[in-house]
């Protein structure tokens, strides 16, 4: 085979696609699956949010009514007057606050853990990563229930807080309990992507920085952080966005008082029986989530790191 022939073969390959690429039709099961489990439910949510609720029973009737969106912001008071409804904005703000705190705390906790794992011998690393994923083996419900026993007034942590502090001090059924629950559940989702970045980090760069006279903090700030930044961004996306829609922690640990948006959505599909409004709240949450995905991608693009959500 001459050089010219080889070149020609390469060009031909390029036209047909990358090596190993097969027919795009092979992706159709995935596309159909995603359409069925994400596309259709999403469409139902949007359509239902624009319909009238059923007069009796559950569900909707097929007449167009955008009232649900008006109800997000306008309250008809019991005395007949109307005004700005701050209740859902407040609940949304709660969701932001708790998710934001959760994200920050998990970042702070995850960086040292991830760096520590990344600097172990390879055989140990695999065991440690498996240990991080260990909680996934148990249902989130059982784990949250377990956590409730621990931070309960009669559990070890609640008991210590009682002995050390004020007898009327409780962790359980407070916003702090909700946030502890969120941190506990989402921590692995921050550790794993940061570890994935840290593992690829060449620690000789850090050594070189020390050799050039950089202090610890400078090395961390100027060398380590930029290297693991893609992991941090991916972690933010994996923690902040699902935390925004969490339901269980505020329900089980927050004592039903620290409502997050998902608790209000659940109320409207259950006792309140207002599916269109529940759907409108869901659409509202989806839009805000998309906004955040966009912001995180922009942040990633600005710093030249591609943010992968999965």
């Amino acid at each position: 085979m001459t050089v010219a022939q080889t070149e020609k073969a390469k060009t031909k390959l390029k036209i047909e696609g990358r090596p190993g690429q097969t027919s795009p039709w092979l992706a159709s099961p995935t596309v159909i699956f995603l359409f069925a489990v994400i596309g259709i439910p999403l469409a139902i949510t949007v359509i239902y949010s624009l319909l009238d609720r059923a007069k009796i029973g559950m569900g909707v009737v097929w007449t167009f009514n955008p009232k649900a969106y008006k109800d997000l912001f306008v309250i008809e008071n019991l005395d007949g007057t109307t005004g700005l409804d701050t209740r859902y904005l407040k609940v949304m703000w709660n969701s932001f606050k708790y998710s934001g705190i959760t994200t920050i705390v998990t970042i702070v906790l995850s960086i040292p853990i991830a760096m520590w794992i990344a600097t172990r011998a390879e055989s140990k690393r695999n065991i440690l990563v498996a240990a991080v994923t260990l909680p996934f083996w148990i249902s989130i419900l059982i784990r949250t229930y377990g956590l409730r026993q621990i931070i309960d007034d009669n559990g070890p942590i609640g008991w210590i807080m009682h002995k050390v502090g004020d007898a009327n001090y409780h962790i359980i059924y407070t916003p702090i309990a909700t946030v502890i629950g969120l941190i506990y559940v989402f921590l692995p989702f921050m550790i794993l992507p940061i570890y994935a970045s840290a593992e690829r980090f060449d620690f000789r760069y850090a050594e070189a920085a020390y050799d050039l006279g950089a202090k610890r903090w400078t090395v961390f700030r100027r060398i380590v952080i930029p290297a693991i930044r893609p992991g941090i961004y991916a972690g933010i996306a994996l923690v902040f966005i699902p935390a925004l829609g969490s339901f269980l922690q505020s329900d089980m640990l927050g004592g039903g008082k620290t409502n997050m948006i998902a608790n209000v959505i659940a109320l409207n599909f259950g006792q309140a029986r207002n599916w269109p409004f529940g759907c409108a709240l869901s659409v509202f949450l989806i839009l805000i989530t998309l906004l955040f995905v966009w912001i995180i991608r922009k942040l990633g693009a600005r710093t030249g790191t591609e943010v992968k959500l999965i």
């Binding site: 019991l78 209740r87 039903g256 008082k257 309140a272």
Partner: peptide, 9 residues
């Protein structure tokens, strides 16, 4: 629902 939601919020 209105009374309950206002109270819990």
């Amino acid at each position: 629902t209105q009374v309950f939601t206002t109270w819990t919020s």
